[in-house]
């Protein structure tokens, strides 16, 4: 008997007794099988903080911690009552490294340590599940074409990535779907002084459009492909060239669309737009970044928990 069948065998009496709840619990059928793979939360950003090192022979290390979670239940775009108190909570710590062969060619590796939990419906009640461990390793090869001008520098980037199934796909709340996935990212980033009316005001912008083409995993799991767009706009109001320090204040906009999977095992689909402020500080070769993003629009393909607010904090160093 599958988990799906077992859970709904328990829910059936409730559905019979309370016809009003029938739609609610039918929609919950999908929620029950939602799995929290790293792909659904993946950012295409590259170390170190999308900025360094651009010099030949340079390397970088960074560690980032991402937290998100919610107990807000969505039915498509609408928030609905959550009488069972269903919730999810995801913590990811990413260990990331980069080596720059030439400013146009880098290799990156990103490995997450995941700690996740959820309260899901089971029978007439709920069951708490949690799992932790290493997730899927992502290896990328950012290719960049730089242009250096008198008062600005910008680059166009293309980054093919492979997500290797290093995470465990065991358990009711697996860390990986066990598939080999391909990521493609197209980016543009600019930093410079674009305004003649404000010649000392530095402006930073990043656009990153990407897709994850997800393969067939283990246990019949298969995530739908994920499309994403990240935008960062910011200024650098404070900097000291002598001390090699500076502060960026930015705004982040992240959009995601996850397509339905071919199988019914992983209905991790829907669309969302998150946005929020970003604070970046650097001292010498060390860069610190903290951001908070909140949902401005979410649409689940059925019933699902909101992603909720997301907090991201990281520190990186270039060598």
């Amino acid at each position: 008997m599958s988990l799906y069948t077992a859970v709904f065998a328990g829910l059936s009496p409730i559905l019979d007794l309370h016809p009003v709840l029938t739609i609610y619990f039918k929609m919950l059928k999908r929620y029950i099988l939602i799995l929290f793979f790293s792909a659904g939360v993946l950012k295409a950003h590259q170390p170190v903080m999308d900025m360094a090192p651009r010099w030949a022979g340079g390397s970088g290390l960074q560690i980032r911690h991402i937290w998100f979670g919610s107990d807000e239940l969505l039915a498509y775009e609408d928030q609905v009552s959550n009488p069972l108190g269903l919730s999810h909570d995801v913590n990811q710590t990413w260990f990331e490294g980069v080596y720059t062969f030439d400013r146009s060619f880098r290799v990156t590796a990103k490995l997450p340590y995941l700690k996740q939990s959820r309260l899901r419906p089971s029978g007439a009640g709920t069951v708490f599940e949690q799992n932790s461990g290493w997730g899927d390793l992502i290896v990328g090869m950012p290719l960049k074409r730089y242009t250096n001008a008198s008062r600005a520098t910008w680059n166009l980037g293309f980054t093919p990535s492979l997500r290797l199934p290093t995470g465990s796909s065991a358990g009711d709340l697996p860390l990986s779907d066990g598939s080999l996935d391909l990521g493609l990212s197209f980016s543009y980033s600019y930093e410079g002084y674009p305004w003649e009316s404000h010649p000392d005001r530095l402006f930073y912008q990043l656009y990153d459009a990407f897709v994850w083409i997800n393969g067939e995993g283990e246990r019949g799991m298969r995530e739908g492909n994920v499309f994403g767009l990240d935008i960062n706009w910011g200024i650098k109001p404070i900097f000291d060239d002598e001390a090699v320090t500076g502060t960026y204040l930015m705004w982040d906009l992240s959009a995601r669309h996850a397509r339905s999977s071919d199988t019914l095992t992983t209905p991790l689909s829907g669309s969302r737009v998150h946005t929020g402020p970003v604070f970046v500080q650097y001292w010498g070769s060390t860069m610190f970044r903290v951001e908070w993003k909140f949902p401005v629009w979410e649409r689940a393909d059925g019933m699902a928990l909101s992603r909720g607010d997301e907090f991201n904090i990281g520190i990186g160093r270039a060598f």
Binding site: A149, T153, L202, G284, A318
Partner: peptide, 17 residues
């Protein structure tokens, strides 16, 4: 005069070299 050198963090490689 260095075109593109608008960020002292990103230019650490020049200093290093």
């Amino acid at each position: 005069k260095v075109d593109g050198a608008v960020c002292s963090f990103c230019a650490n490689g020049i200093r290093k070299g």
